[in-house]
Design a protein around this nucleic acid. Structure first.
Lengths: 232, 232
DNA sequence: GCATATCAATCTGTATACAGCTTGACGGAG
DNA sequence: CTCCGTCAAGCTGTATACAGATTGATATGC
């Protein structure tokens, strides 16, 4: 979305990643002078980037007191998952109704191509990346750039939670078969042009993950404040 | 959302209204120096506000060339309506499932309280205001502040189109009975706690309006570039 | 010992200055 | 007449300076 171009977009990209990964701890105040030094830019472009991130929900802003990292509560994450249900069940429906045959074949092919790795991989970050790619591909197939933007934003905002939760699941030896099966089911429903079924399956898939949100936040917190322990 | 406080939020509010009303014409380049003079603030807070509006989809930004007003095309408006379907059918569902009895009674009461005015009024702006209040109340009843934010944003971005279209409908003598009936049906479905029905009715309501989007954009264009003609 | 008032250090909010780029115009060549 | 190169005016991108607000600490009174 943002061009890899000049200073402000570089600062924006760096900040977005930092905010997504909670390198800035929840509710922590952001010191503009220190950050501008750290990022090698002056406060003017830094504040422009910060303002964009506020509008995108990654940061909050209190007048006269500066910028803060967003908070991280179970209730908030539940809301983000509910929003994902709303947006992604619709992208699945639209993809089923509007995508080209060729792009639907490609979707099925991508799922199968990654299936082996997905089922076997013990790398949480890699699994999450593949999972997000799947959801983003469906969003792209919906042909609606606005919905696609929403999916990207919501994915970015729950990434940290999901990553921590996936590490935990991998650590406990649970294989990712259920998730893989769900992806296959979703892709099949979309490919069969059944919009309503696609929407329902996608809804169920995300709602099932939402149930874990509360515990996932707890895990995320424990990881945030004990950063030295290796988790994978 | 933004405090009525200091300079930057005042500039932000003013710009948001200007962008929503297309006082800045579609794809028009924004001259920062001129705008800063007009708004009585320097370029620094102005650019901060502009960046937030970019993130919210009201403006676009091209590196090295400055800020532009968003474009206005039938395809884009269709996308916004599709997004509204996704988000608002879910707010209706959640409102039906999670809102308190008292707040649902209030929703029904508000619809009935405004029914007479809604059916008879010839003031397009007033009608639109009531319509948006209805949708926003449901979004609030969903208990999900993220979805509520999305509804607000989408409503603001299609407001101008809807206003022009409503003026045209009023001018042609079409009463707003269908819309009023739809609101009653939606409110009843939500109040009866039937989430699926509420979602379906809301979906149908917005999708029906979406059909008019292409013509609405055409009307909006004609009004944008012939601003002197009175339309109501 | 506790609460409160005062103050200094720090940080935010904004204006302004300047460098580099963009763009449109003008003039000349083909 | 058209196309292209050159140039100047204007605009954007960013650094920096400074004023006003905030915050935490220290000291004082009860």
């Amino acid at each position: 979305m943002t061009k890899p171009d000049s200073n402000v977009s570089r600062v924006y990209a760096a900040l977005r990643r930092m905010a997504a990964d909670f390198e800035l701890k929840p509710d922590e105040r952001i010191n503009e002078s220190a950050l501008s030094l750290q990022l090698g830019a002056s406060r003017t472009p830094l504040r422009e980037a910060l303002n964009r991130l506020v509008a995108e929900g990654f940061l909050t802003f209190r007048s006269g007191r500066g910028f803060y990292c967003r908070s991280l509560s179970p209730a908030l994450v539940m809301e983000l998952y509910e929003a994902r249900v709303a947006v992604e069940s619709e992208t699945a429906r639209l993809a089923a109704l509007k995508a080209s045959d060729a792009s639907l074949d490609a979707l099925l092919a991508h799922v199968e191509a990654g299936a082996a790795e997905y089922a076997a991989s013990g790398d949480a970050a890699r699994l999450l990346e593949m999972d997000e790619a799947f959801h983003l591909e469906i969003a792209a197939l919906s042909g609606n750039s606005e919905l696609r933007r929403m999916v990207e934003n919501l994915n970015d905002r729950v990434r940290f939670i999901r990553l921590m939760f996936m590490k935990r699941m991998i650590g406990s030896g649970t294989p990712q078969l259920a998730r893989l099966a769900a992806h296959r089911t979703i892709a099949a429903a979309i490919a069969s042009r059944d919009g309503e079924a696609a929407a329902q399956v996608m809804r169920g898939h995300i709602e099932r993950r939402r149930e874990d949100a509360a515990e996932a936040v707890r895990i995320a917190y424990s990881q945030l404040y004990v950063p030295d322990e290796e988790t994978s």
